[in-house]
Design a protein around this nucleic acid. Structure first.
Lengths: 344, 344
DNA sequence: TTGTACGCGTTATCAA
DNA sequence: TTGATAACGCGTACAA
């Protein structure tokens, strides 16, 4: 094949040779080992820079059993909330000297399983996961967990006890805040478009909704509560159903922003005045909610705080060598806030 | 379940031992080597599955000098266009058995340099880059290129000749289409808010703008052309300047969607009717453009096609062992289209 | 078709 | 403080 065409990367042996030292010393100097003469260390660093040396992470990882790489599985990076969380995680991990392998499950369980497998094979030092909406069984993470690799779930977390760390937004409070807000601005007939209850997100947001309704002694119309995939189309269909009756809602709490936007669109198309005839509030504070007319009220989830917390917990677990396996960690909950805009 | 506390992963030696075979045979069976008996291969695969074996990518990579990992440097994953491109790249690379390490430069040159360094150290098999807007010197990619690692630039590409592959949208045509559209719908006094000319994106879009104006013999008002960072604030300031004069523009071509949205916002706040008094067109077909009132015309860049092309070219280079170093590759250009909406 | 033996670049354990 | 040497897990000439 090709001969001397390979411009070999420089290794610690090249540095050793150039400096008439042993590779062991070079390695120690490069790793800030205590027992290295200051001058030697400086010489090594200088020569390393001069030769354009870069540590071979594979060799290093093979020997030390550490990759300095964290895996991340997320449904879709294009979802605003996740994009923000990821950005924070990455920038923060970078400061700690870790790389991040970002993978998308496309909200498909089979893909999530496969990715868990691949990241396991890649020997990531830790794994961060926002589950698929359909993930109810978590055994594909078992081998990571039992290998002692810290696994952190965020946003969409297992419903049952699972020996890993959970970090989530306060979805119950979010649902409660949104609904209470609608009630306090005078609504009485409140509809609720929610996702399927297989996910903790919609269980909690819906529970918050019910709690607020109950507290104010307002009836929940079963035909105005939807648990379905939160798509634009589904939301418009739901709206069409609700507004075909004689009694119609005067407010809507949508469990995400996409459906809130869809509802607003439906309202405009059908001459329903927002907020006069119908108040609307969404969830997530997607940037789109601020540029609709009227602008949509929503719930802020502070993605940056979520990301920050994830890294904080992760680094702690990584430093302490082991994850806090024994103690039953209660989930970390990140607060949410109500964003009032013109739609309510 | 298994009781022995084996934090150790299984290796090919474990499989070899269990099957009374040599590790070499296991390795061959696992890699579909031709000279392996069919039965042996099946036995190995079965045992591998049974033991939950996963190849150690570090050891494999160290030996074969291949990581099956591709690096990606992008300004921000939260930008719609990039998010879409990345999603396509990742799903497609996944099918080819490659992992993707996604890194964000935050549009900072120093970060881009550092990331190039890190990915070089990680021995990625290839690198995909969307440059920072300020990147005019590309020497930080030199070591990748000279090591024979395929480097593919997309969207924001080097202005001068650089020994790598370029994949970009047809920005010149995009600028031309947008401007021509404004002219054909009756505009004569066309303003242009653009990014700094240090990036090929805005050079080309602006050139398309000028070409269209020239072709229709329309004068370009220097005070209505801005080359500045394309932020919401800057755009509003630019609008304020333009609309403080006695003669005002009757149309605006904004070189991205954020600024088009900002311009629309300014118009609404100042009683300027869109599209009657002012037509607006943006660039990128960000999802937000379709939900403003009125909806914004824009230029579609087909991010999925861009991503698809990147992977196609990349896999080809990876398979052929070397990148087409000798031949001067002309850049691959992905077509764009005009999206007409109510704002124009 | 399978086995033996070596080395990829680094780090850890000795000994000097 | 430094050097020699042995792993880490895998892939591949070469031998059988």
């Amino acid at each position: 094949m090709n001969k001397d065409k390979k411009p070999q990367q420089n290794t610690i042996l090249d540095i050793a040779e150039a400096l008439k030292l042993s590779p062991a010393t070079i390695s120690r100097a490069l790793n800030n080992h205590p027992h290295v003469k200051e001058k030697t260390k400086n010489d090594v660093l200088k020569m390393a820079a001069q030769l354009g040396y870069r540590r071979n992470q594979m060799a290093s990882g093979l020997r030390s059993n550490k990759t300095h790489t964290v895996g991340l599985i997320v449904p879709r990076i294009s979802m605003f909330f996740h994009a923000e969380v990821i950005t924070t995680i990455q920038n923060s991990l970078h400061k700690h000297g870790y790389n991040l392998i970002i993978c998308q499950s496309n909200d498909l369980l089979s893909m999530e399983e496969e990715l868990a497998d691949i990241l396991y094979a890649s020997r990531v030092d830790a794994l961060i996961v926002a589950c698929t909406l359909q993930t109810t069984d978590f055994s594909h993470f078992d081998k990571l967990v039992s290998s002692g690799i810290p696994v952190i779930f965020y946003d969409r977390v297992p419903l049952d006890a699972y020996p890993a760390t959970f970090i989530k937004g306060d979805d119950f409070r979010g649902g409660y805040l949104a609904t209470t807000h609608l009630i306090e601005t005078g609504s009485q007939r409140i509809a609720h478009i929610s996702g399927k209850l297989s996910s903790n997100l919609y269980q909690d947001r819906s529970a918050g909704f019910r709690k607020a309704m109950e507290q104010h002694q307002l009836p929940i119309h079963a035909e105005w509560v939807f648990h379905q995939e939160l798509t634009h189309e589904n939301a418009k269909e739901a709206m069409a159903k609700m507004f075909s009756g004689t009694v119609v809602p005067d407010a809507l709490f949508s469990a995400n922003d996409v459906t809130a936007i869809a509802a607003l669109e439906f309202a405009k198309e059908n001459g329903i005045q927002v907020p006069r005839d119908l108040k609307i509030i969404g969830y997530s504070n997607d940037p789109r909610t601020s540029i609709t007319t009227p602008a949509l009220s929503t719930i802020e989830q502070y993605p940056a705080k979520v990301g920050q917390k994830i890294v904080e917990v992760l680094i702690e677990q990584l430093k302490s060598g082991e994850k806090g396996s024994g103690l039953e960690q209660r989930p970390y909950v990140i607060p949410v806030d109500l964003i009032r805009r013109m739609s309510s």
